[in-house]
Design a protein around this nucleic acid. Structure first.
Length: 456
DNA sequence: AAACAGTGCGCG
DNA sequence: AAAGCGCGCACTGTTT
């Protein structure tokens, strides 16, 4: 079986040509800034490492491993903490990642985590990007042939995982990306891209309402349910934690046990509060939820447990709020199991052994990216070319486009982005049954990417 | 020295 | 019965 339709082939063929142009363009990098920041960061790491040298844990570590001691080794740290110093290992701690280590609440471990975090920022991003610069420009690759879902990817350097969620780290790295002289960095983002494309598959009327009615907000509504808050007590942090740890997790096929665990941990990690500033745990206690629960799927959740609460929220989410989506998942999986493949709305075939959650997600993820890819291709190979624009597209991050904008072309470029995504794309794909929306962020002339700000 | 596997973590 | 989707890169530790 040829795993694609002619339209699907055309999309990737023309997309590849457009992305080759993006790669050739490249993004300007402030090399002086990178140089100084790498030096500064290196010194900071050294100071931090010096700061833990006198501690008991460090000494035990050194005693145990001598010349073979490696501060970056989690394996060695595990030995030192639990074998040498015999620190109590919390039950359920099966890994040495940040979340698990934070459970120890140990001063040395906290310092060590902070050091590793900074080393990662430096090696992967500051130094990693610097290594790829040629004549003041980085040219990340954007291949279309590497993923199982027919999404794109990026490498050398990866332009699609540059820090942003932790503002300080995001700024540190994104300060290095600058526009060409006299220009400005812009980023166009397709709002709720995956959610919109998912709706074209399952067609759940309640979801379509959320998408069409701007006054509705699914993440806010789920934050209200997860944390038992009235609408006006949901703040930004609570909403965004709910969005990633409950709503998207559920879409991807998570279940209440892990959702409850991660949300519970996030309450303290993200310092979640009500809009009035009451810590969420305190707020929940007032509502009778005083503990996480035993997280045993074979037993009924304990009364007063967050686990039991999230279990009910989950049931309501699928059975009451989005029953059509829920049913679509089952029929989509059944269809795969009888045919042996799925075909995406954009004409690609995914085949081979797939688990339930993969079957559900692949088509949605691929098609959502294809909306971005079609728009980018249309912009480059038609709209911007026709107008002989000097503005350059310099990168793509799954549902957003980064560009190096000539100020005089700014308004035209914004208008074109909006027109292509919200109107032309829907003309191209009649099955795109929901409205599309874009968000533009732009930094000032000669300012770095880090300075991008939303425009109306 | 190079290749590989495992872990962890950055992003959508 | 099963239980978070998709990537790429750095680092450690082991094997070739």
């Amino acid at each position: 079986m040829i795993p694609y339709t002619p339209q699907a082939y055309k999309l990737l063929h023309e997309g590849s040509i457009a992305l080759a142009e993006v790669e050739a363009n490249g993004m300007r990098v402030d090399m002086d800034y990178l140089e100084r920041t790498i030096r500064k960061t290196h010194r900071r790491v050294q100071r931090m490492e010096a700061g833990i040298k006198g501690t008991d844990v460090y000494r035990a570590w050194h005693r145990t491993f001598g010349g073979k001691m490696k501060l970056g080794s989690r394996e060695q740290l595990k030995t030192v903490l639990f074998k040498v110093l015999k620190i109590d290992k919390p039950d359920g701690m099966d890994s040495m990642d940040e979340t698990s280590l934070n459970l120890l609440n140990h001063p040395f471990v906290k310092d060590w985590l902070a050091i590793e975090k900074l080393k990662k920022t430096s090696s992967t991003y500051l130094v990693g990007i610097q290594r790829q610069v040629v004549d003041g420009l980085v040219h990340p690759f954007f291949p279309l042939h590497t993923t199982r879902t027919y999404r794109g990817s990026s490498s050398d350097p990866n332009f699609q995982n540059i820090p942003i969620r932790v503002p300080e780290t995001g700024r540190l790295v994104r300060r290095a990306f600058i526009p060409r002289k006299g220009r400005q960095v812009g980023e166009m983002d397709i709002k709720g891209n995956e959610v919109r494309f998912a709706a074209c598959y399952h067609k759940d009327p309640r979801m379509i309402e959320y998408i069409c009615d701007e006054s509705k907000d699914m993440h806010r509504d789920m934050a209200m349910e997860c944390f038992l808050l009235p609408q006006d007590q949901v703040n930004k942090g609570t909403r965004s934690t709910t969005k990633s740890l409950f709503v998207f997790a559920q879409f991807y096929g998570d279940w209440y046990i892990d959702c409850a665990k991660r949300l519970w941990e996030a309450i303290e990690l993200d310092k979640l509060t009500t809009a009035d500033g009451v810590p969420i745990k305190k707020h929940l206690a007032g509502k009778g939820i005083v503990r996480l629960g035993n997280l045993d799927p074979k037993r009924e959740p304990l009364p007063g447990s967050f686990e039991g609460h999230i279990k009910a929220v989950e049931r309501n989410f699928w059975k009451k709020r989005f029953p059509v989506y829920d049913k679509w998942k089952r029929t989509w999986v059944d269809a795969y199991r009888s045919k042996g493949y799925i075909q995406t709305l954009t004409g690609f075939v995914c085949q081979g052994y797939m688990k339930k959650n993969e079957i559900i997600n692949y088509g949605i993820q691929g098609s959502a990216f294809h909306g971005l890819l079609w728009s980018l291709t249309r912009l480059i190979r038609y709209e911007m070319r026709k107008r002989r624009m000097k503005t350059l597209i310099v990168g793509q991050i799954h549902d957003s486009i980064v560009s190096d904008i000539v100020p005089e072309e700014r308004d035209d470029y914004i208008m074109l982005c909006r027109d292509v995504v919200t109107r032309q794309l829907r003309e191209e794909w009649p099955w795109l049954i929901v409205p599309m929306d874009v968000e533009m962020e732009i930094a000032g002339i000669d300012e770095p990417w880090a300075n991008k700000k939303a425009i109306i």
